[in-house]
């Protein structure tokens, strides 16, 4: 049975404004995160995964804006919170870890200053207590306190990513958004960092949103999976539902594109490219690449429908 929902979005829409026009980066996204579980968000590059993660914590790039929909956390629509109220949630209730550990720390500040600054910004403790919290946070990500005095350039990629995770979790938030936290790391370190996130999840009963372009990785680690395509959430459900019984043609193709150890020659990449989001195709955004395209797909935009318990898909083929 499903647990409690920690956060959900309703018809979320995000736009980026560029010289060429308006990028429709997210449209009608209905997404949810269940408490103390790990939800993977997958899809090809440019389909809006990071945008969704950053919209939830409301740190979009300066030319981006949430233009419609709601994000409900603890019964409150956080889209309507003032900048100051939102700031208090960031880091304290919702943490973010970004893709590239090389660039996500301030090169001019030591690890200690990063941690202290974050702690002191949110809670009223003495410097000594804050320092103790900082040390605990470091040891909880498996780093020695010796590293407190280090500057980012003195750390390895894996160490930096651990520091970034320590920073995002030092205040024991409820939700952790990890945006491709391991893409820039080598395979062994990747696994360690993901194990670490799972450990923290259990320890702090964290709700984790793991953004990744690697559906195999999501299948292995996640409890729930959301599949995104061209700014739409096209499929969402428990990991077994989505992986074993994929309903959207795009999800099926994504799964086929996974290199299979027994059968490497079977790998097929999805033909074609994701569309330009300034002028997305009408109707279903996937229709130009869809092997099951019907006439109606060009005209009508599919809505999310429930095909199994908690298993949703946005495809006109599944409409009864």
């Amino acid at each position: 049975m499903d647990g409690e929902v920690a956060l959900y979005t309703e018809d979320l829409g995000v736009r980026y404004y560029i010289q060429r026009g308006v990028v429709k980066a997210l449209d009608d996204v209905n997404f949810r995160l269940y408490k103390a579980s790990l939800t993977g968000v997958v899809g090809e590059s440019g389909c809006g995964k990071s945008t969704l993660g950053r919209a939830i914590i409301r740190v979009l790039p300066p030319n981006g804006e949430i233009t419609s929909g709601r994000i409900i956390y603890n019964g409150v629509n956080i889209v309507e919170l003032s900048e100051e109220e939102m700031r208090k949630l960031r880091g304290r209730e919702i943490g973010l870890v970004m893709q590239d550990p090389m660039t996500s720390l301030d090169p001019l500040m030591s690890v200690k200053d990063h941690l202290l600054e974050t702690i002191l910004e949110h809670i009223e403790v003495s410097r000594d207590e804050a320092l103790k919290m900082a040390e605990e946070a470091l040891s909880s990500v498996g780093l020695s306190r010796e590293l407190l005095k280090s500057y980012p350039h003195q750390l390895s990629g894996g160490q930096r990513q651990r520091v970034a995770i320590a920073l995002a979790t030092v205040l024991k938030p409820k939700i952790l958004i990890a945006d491709e936290p391991t893409t820039a790391l080598d395979v062994i370190v990747q696994k360690k960092v993901l194990d670490l996130i799972e450990d923290l999840m259990r320890e702090l009963s964290l709700t984790v949103m793991l953004i990744t372009h690697d559906i195999a990785l999501a299948a292995e680690r996640a409890d729930y999976i959301g599949v995104m395509y061209a700014g739409h959430l096209v499929e969402y459900g428990r990991v077994d539902q989505v992986i074993e019984d994929p309903q959207h043609p795009y999800t099926q193709l994504l799964l086929k594109s996974v290199p299979d150890i027994e059968n490497i020659s079977m790998v097929q990449s999805i033909p074609g490219l994701p569309p330009d989001l300034v002028n997305p195709p009408p109707g279903c955004r996937f229709h130009p690449r869809c092997p099951y395209k019907m006439d109606i797909c060009i005209r009508e935009e599919p809505k999310m429908i429930e095909v199994g318990e908690g298993h949703y898909v946005a495809c006109l083929l599944r409409r009864r």
Binding site: V59, P62, E65, E83
Partner: peptide, 11 residues
Amino acid sequence: MKSRILGVFKM
């Protein structure tokens, strides 16, 4: 740092 800038982005 304002998160919203509308219209033309850069001259």
